[in-house]
Design a protein around this nucleic acid. Structure first.
Length: 469
RNA sequence: GGGGCAGUAGGGUAGUCUGGUCUAUCCUCGCGGCUUUGGGAGCCGUGGACGGCAGUUCGAAUCUGCCCUGCCCCA
């Protein structure tokens, strides 16, 4: 495996498929379409990412666990919702050899599993706001081309939060809070992103409106990496979720839900990775520092390495690679795994009580005395995160282009996103998509006066357009 | 949604058109051993494969059909 080369990142599709296997993120060889296996290393990476997400949510949400199976009658209650998911639902229809009286859906998302129970949990205004989340697998029988971590039939890592509030306005504040939380989360992954309001024809089925978080992949296509939905009282009415307000009136709750999936792992890999493999932000890297001994006759460099390991392992996830491979082979191996810092100790370093540190993101090397090692490592790790985020941010911003004509937009969309004026009409939005071979991602919060590129009507709405996954 | 192409050890391949010493090639990999160690080491030994089901045939990796899986292009 060590002699196999990763395709260059310019060939993004090949690069992406190969890196998942070579860096041991997921094994795509499981014999069901759109379903993969997490390797131990990939799973460790996933755990680190999701523990960040948990820590952000746990501030004011409670974690729960709802069942995978949803009875048909509950699933079929909300008309819009059914329309959105019906064609992708897996059904369990048999128990052993006998048909079930009521078919059971494998959750494609959990609104219809959770909300009948919220009806029981929520009685009065003192139960509100209620904020829960779960991290579970969900199933969607995707009809389009599947891609590991990006378009899958089993979403293994669906974090879905569900909240209930007294008023529409309070729910709207929750939408803003959720977007802020997602912003914090993606900054920790050093993944820059844009936030837009999805057009009505592309919102979550059953929501009042949907907000989306997108990033740009290296091939210029947008990847939706998070969504936040204002559900209003739509589901509350369907599932009869009511509370008694302070003056004794029965009212429907206003709800939100918001989700993140393993696409966040895909985005982090794709945004930072390079021709040599993964490049991981230090907070996420399962191994933060690898120590490589350079063996030489008559000098016990291995002992010096063990000493350095002892110095570092309390504070950083550190590994000493004392395997029998040669140093070069070890460099390639750990670079593939994205380890942020490599420490080398050979005769030169030993004589002077030094360590050579090499950064994964820039390959810059620096020799530091043992006495200053801890501080140097701390500084370099934080510099790596800052550099990854800054580079990615610039790359994203340079690919968002203001466009005054459809021709300009068509060109911009080949490499990134086009920012254009739009009147707000569905017909014009869809037409813009057809003409440019892209689609309307969503509306930006910014207001800029201009004219709709299709109907020429005056407008202050600005939308982002892109090709997307 | 429409149209192509492909599936041979863990990974990548030769062989398929023209069925027969294919007892399946080469590289990589795994295991055992010896020598090595500042950017993918060398030698010796050894291990492992024709996607599945059915059909044609004396005989199928090779031909036919269906299924599964993957990749590419267009909308």
């Amino acid at each position: 495996m060590k002699d196999e080369k990763l395709p260059r990142k310019e060939k993004f599709s090949e690069w992406y498929n190969e890196i998942l296997q070579m860096a041991e993120i997921v094994d795509v060889r499981y014999p069901i379409k759109g379903i993969c296996v997490w390797y131990p290393f990939g799973f460790a990476l996933r755990q680190r990412i999701y523990s960040i997400l948990r820590s952000l949510l746990d501030v004011d949400h409670q974690e729960v666990m709802f069942p995978l199976l949803i009875p048909e009658n509950e699933f079929m209650k909300e008309a819009e919702h059914i329309k959105g998911f019906e064609e992708e639902v897996y059904w369990v229809t048999k128990g052993g050899s006998k048909s079930l009286e009521m078919p059971l859906a494998l959750r494609p998302t959990s609104e219809t599993a959770i909300y009948p129970i919220l009806r029981l949990w929520i009685r009065s205004h003192v139960d509100l706001p209620l904020k829960i989340y779960q991290i579970v697998n969900t199933f969607r029988c995707e009809t389009k081309h599947t891609r590991p971590l990006i378009r899958v039939r089993e979403i293994t890592s669906f974090k879905e939060a569900h909240t209930a509030h007294s008023t529409w306005g309070e729910a709207e504040l929750q939408v803003k809070d959720a977007l802020k939380l997602y912003g914090d989360f993606f900054r920790r992954l050093a993944v820059p992103h844009v936030i837009t309001k999805r057009p009505d024809w592309d919102k979550f089925p059953g929501s009042d409106y949907s907000m989306a978080v997108d990033t740009l992949m290296p091939d210029g296509k947008a990847l939706q990496i998070g969504t936040v939905h204002h559900l209003g009282t739509n589901f509350a009415k369907t599932f009869d979720v009511r509370y008694e307000d302070p003056v004794g009136e029965q009212r429907y709750v206003n709800q939100t839900c918001y989700g993140i999936s393993e696409r966040c792992v895909a985005a982090m890999i794709a945004v930072h990775g390079d021709d040599k493999g993964l490049v991981l932000p230090p907070e996420i890297a399962p191994t933060q520092i690898v120590i490589i001994p350079i063996v030489a006759k008559g000098m016990d460099t291995l002992d010096a390495c063990k000493h350095v390991l002892d110095m570092l392992k309390g504070e950083y996830r550190t590994v000493l690679d004392d395997s029998q491979e040669r140093p070069g082979a070890k460099y390639y191996k750990w670079e593939m795994k994205g380890v942020p810092l490599r420490a080398e100790i050979g005769p030169r370093e030993m004589e002077r009580d030094e360590v050579m540190l090499v950064r994964r993101d820039t390959f810059k090397r620096e020799t530091v005395p043992l006495s200053k090692l801890s501080k140097a490592v701390e500084d370099m790790l934080s510099a790596i995160h800052a550099n990854l985020y800054e580079k990615a941010r610039q790359s994203l911003e340079s690919r968002i282009v203001d466009c005054k004509t459809l021709d300009e937009a068509k060109v911009a969309i080949q490499k990134g996103m086009a920012k254009v004026s739009w009147c707000g009409e569905e017909g014009c939005g869809l037409r813009m998509g057809e003409v440019t071979n892209g689609g309307v991602l969503g509306e930006l919060a910014a207001i800029e006066s201009g004219k709709c590129l299709i109907c020429d009507k005056k407008t202050d709405k600005v939308v982002l357009m892109a090709r997307s996954y």
